[in-house]
Design a protein around this nucleic acid. Structure first.
Lengths: 338, 338
DNA sequence: CTGTTAGCGCCTTCAC
DNA sequence: GTGAAGGCGCTAACAG
């Protein structure tokens, strides 16, 4: 069977408690004793039994991460960041996919995984704002994303501000007819609505008129839907010199179409995305975009959750991550007609 | 504190063992007793403590999945399939990223996660074939991918055969000058080499000459590198009427360039990818590709691993998944000059 | 600084 | 068909 602390203690000629002290970095152990124990550990190939520790301590050392889909680049990269942040703090992440389906999101709140984790990072996409009471669960939880505002900690992007900044960035580069792609008409919250609001805000501030003809709807935020929306705009003959894609996939789809149609980017049309997904570093031309602070979101969310797990009872907090404009080729300066 | 079996037993007026029997679907429980226990469970909101069960049973009910990166679409979708397969079998998946770095791959073999999992599904990308002895670990493991052939169970794609089939598919559609993109010159194993071998095999069978000018190298298998390779081929003025991308990202990058250059797909050039990634369903035109049997790979790998965990001592097995040609628009028939 | 004791919540063994 | 006892490997509390 597996080597236990008992075996190590026996071998090192100490008690089991001393072994525990060494393993747990308890400071008051005589160096000589510590050495003997460490030697025994090495010789026996001992490895701590996490399950036993967890049972004893009443925690599992794991946190859950429930997200729509790993195959959506933003979430894959978010998962990456969360795992890194968690690792740095000594906890392990258990990922769960909800497929952005309402019932599976509800299920995640009550799945068997909840018995295996000390808390949950929850990124819902389908739950409705009216269902916030479902978020009143009896375990620590931190919400990610824009979707809900229940009585729990919440880490979110500066959607409005960042979209505004992206649009203004295009204005500063000389754009006067700026289209946006990815709108969800009728939506009252959620990223599409918030980013659209930021876009309009920027136009207003810049003294540019809002033109509904410059708005490209796109339900799913994929390359293909971005390409379709861009195609519709071009086919409609709308005059434009800038495009703000509400995420990078949409913007990349738009870039693709512009290329195909012989529209020079950034010379004729400048393009901004949103998310700073890995792909944006590999496009032609390189896509300018918004870094929404994914790292910060991940580390903050993990920290808030760990505080709750540690027993913090402060009122629900709301953290908005810092964003940054990532200026690349697709909206280089110097494109303006002087 | 949490509700325990003891509480339930007390409430139902039975012993703790009876509760355990009910919870574990033990058949010989009087219906009346079962009902009483189930009632008590519901009333108290009892949930089994998995940690305690795991400690007692000496297993964790979790399996590890170590893969290069979730942000690579193929692996994100593989993770998805593995999680589904595992769920159906009542086990939970713990994902770990290695970044395709040799040291982190080695680390994964010995990380703290190993104490939390009953076994490991390991998909290395950087380890060298000479290092197969590192795979002789003291826990159940199943290898995924082409990279290594150590003394462990291995589930792999039919790389050579599928690449051959993809290339022949282009031949059947009338292609005579078929380029391939994604080659890794000098590689002796790994997907790039195997798929290249399949490509050459198909050419030979079809009686077509192999022309080194039709081979586009690409170290990383991204859209951008695919686009670059395609650009180099076109710029070199090589005559071609078909392209086999060694994965979908490469093929999608090539599609993009062909579009930009005004080359009609599939009319002038037919294109095949490999992997059947989600994106292939959203491109313009839709990308024909190879479904390498990801679902089958996932379910088989999970099954093999669970057999090992259950104690199976049979010699290492090697399973090659079935593949399928997914014919979409990018290589439609009727493009041939008759 | 180190040893002893007593469980964490569950399942297995063996009675009854 | 059900109950009682013991222990999985570890750590918290308290001695010494």
């Amino acid at each position: 069977m597996a080597v236990t602390m008992h075996d190590v203690a026996h071998r090192a000629g100490v008690s089991i408690k001393t072994v525990s002290n060494v393993v747990n970095q308890y400071p008051h152990v005589r160096p000589e004793t510590r050495r003997r124990v460490e030697e025994a550990i090495a010789e026996l190939g001992y490895r701590l039994n996490t399950t036993a520790r967890n049972l004893r301590q009443g925690r599992t050392g794991m946190i859950g991460l429930a997200l729509p889909e790993l195959s959506l680049p933003y979430f894959a990269e978010l998962a990456d960041s969360v795992m890194r942040a968690a690792e740095a703090r000594g906890v392990v992440v258990l990922i769960e996919q909800t497929g952005a389906q309402r019932d599976r999101e509800l299920q995640a709140l009550d799945s068997s995984h909840r018995r295996l984790t000390d808390g949950l990072l929850f990124s819902p996409l389908a739950l409705e704002p009216e269902e916030t009471e479902r978020l009143e669960v009896d375990y620590p939880m931190v919400l990610l994303g824009e979707r809900m505002f229940g009585p729990v900690d919440h880490v979110t992007m500066a959607n409005v501000e960042a979209a505004r900044a992206a649009t203004l960035h295009l204005v500063e580069r000389g754009c006067r007819r700026i289209a946006t792609i990815g709108a969800h008409p009728g939506e009252t919250m959620g990223s599409a609505r918030l980013r659209f609001d930021g876009y309009r805000k920027a136009l207003a501030e810049a003294g540019l008129p809002f033109d509904p003809d410059l708005v490209g709807d796109a339900g799913l935020w994929h390359r293909s839907t971005g390409a379709e929306a861009m195609t519709r705009l071009l086919d409609a003959g709308v005059e434009l010199d800038g495009v703000f894609g509400m995420n990078d996939a949409l913007a990349l789809g738009a870039l693709h179409v512009l290329h195909t149609r012989g529209v020079a980017v950034p010379h004729d049309v400048a393009v901004m995305g949103f998310d700073d997904v890995d792909d944006a570093r590999y496009s032609e031309p390189l896509l300018s975009t918004i870094d929404p602070g994914r790292e910060q979101i991940a580390t903050t969310a993990v920290d808030l959750l760990l505080e709750r797990i540690a027993g913090s009872q402060v009122p629900p907090r709301r953290v908005v991550a810092d964003f940054e404009i990532v200026a690349r080729e697709s909206c280089l300066l110097g494109r303006t007609v002087h």
